[in-house]
Design a protein around this nucleic acid. Sequence first.
DNA 1: CCGGATCCGGGTTGATACTG
DNA 2: CAGTATCAACCCGGATCCGG
Lengths: 209, 209
Amino acid sequence: MRSYGQYCSLARALDVIGDRWTLLIVRELAARGPSRYTDLRHGLPGIATNMLADRLREMEENDIVRREEAPPPIATTLFSLTERGEELTPVLFALGRWGVALMDERGDDEWRGYWLKYPLEQLFADAAPGEPPVTLELRTGDGPVVVETVDGAVRVHSGSAEQPDAVLTGDPEDVIELLKGSIDVRAARRRGVQVEGDAKAVARVRPRI
Amino acid sequence: MRSYGQYCSLARALDVIGDRWTLLIVRELAARGPSRYTDLRHGLPGIATNMLADRLREMEENDIVRREEAPPPIATTLFSLTERGEELTPVLFALGRWGVALMDERGDDEWRGYWLKYPLEQLFADAAPGEPPVTLELRTGDGPVVVETVDGAVRVHSGSAEQPDAVLTGDPEDVIELLKGSIDVRAARRRGVQVEGDAKAVARVRPRI
DNA sequence: CCGGATCCGGGTTGATACTG
DNA sequence: CAGTATCAACCCGGATCCGG
């Protein structure tokens, strides 16, 4: 990106991370940890492969991304955030928080389940922190994600749970509305969400005030 | 801007404010309040006039900016942030905070004194909150700015002070280093900073922790 | 002077094909 | 798997012009 040429920390930051796709690459690496080139492409639907290669190179030069050649038996290239890259999480949070108001209709937007990680961990909490922890599994289109209550907070990671208290299957919009509490289990079922297991466990994951 | 087409609040936010210049226009309006087109141009050195007009129109459509025709005797167009636009300040703060580490050399970057407003208000405080408040005037190139201690915090606005406790004149880099405390008055003078008035008042404005 | 609109050249991005 | 190469489309920057 062409520099703004201003002696201002905001402008300097935008010189480095203001390019198209850059912050979404940071999102991918923050949500999934060290990732292969191909996995990044999968998490960035619509990106051109040369664009991803260019951005990764620039971000490496700017000390945001680190490239590691994993030794056998993995034998692949892994991209991960540097410490300086991790420090961008407050930026992701602020932008993501502001963008919540824009999440009106799903349309035909792309969707990956693990994109829920930071929204849920930041904006949701355990509604009954005194009770024994619960585990949910969400199946919303691509790979499943696990949602757990831990010390009153919510933790999210990709993968399946061994013994989930409940499993939610359906469109992301509907599952999210169910977790938000803006619709109940009955209404969610009417929209096509499958709720298996303990419906009470679902109500444990709720927005912070 | 072309949409990323992702059902993710970060991507949605970037759809709206990810364009070049957009966040800098927000900075201008946040730091100076309602502004005329020409003043915005002055605060955004390097912007093409059609670009500013385009961005303002898009930002108006996206409910970030409001355009008002001020009645006589002002009789000009004023641009200001909507409530939704004001809600972008956490984004400016997060990005600006991250960019501080990039503020190494001034080079021939452009500079406006009021760009100090948010950095100083956020990152600095009154080192002796119990003492009577002090007022500084900074003259660093373009218009002067007033720095005041208020209830232990620091407030900044454009303009001149009537009875400043001290006046600092010099290059922005040097004045900032003096306020940060990384150089003392003696060293600042050696670099060409003029310190008039009470040097003790200068030491009242210091980085938090 | 204020608030733009128009035009054009160049740089950035997107889509697809191809490769070690 | 991890990219390069190519080319078209679009966005941006710079200059100029224009109606109040």
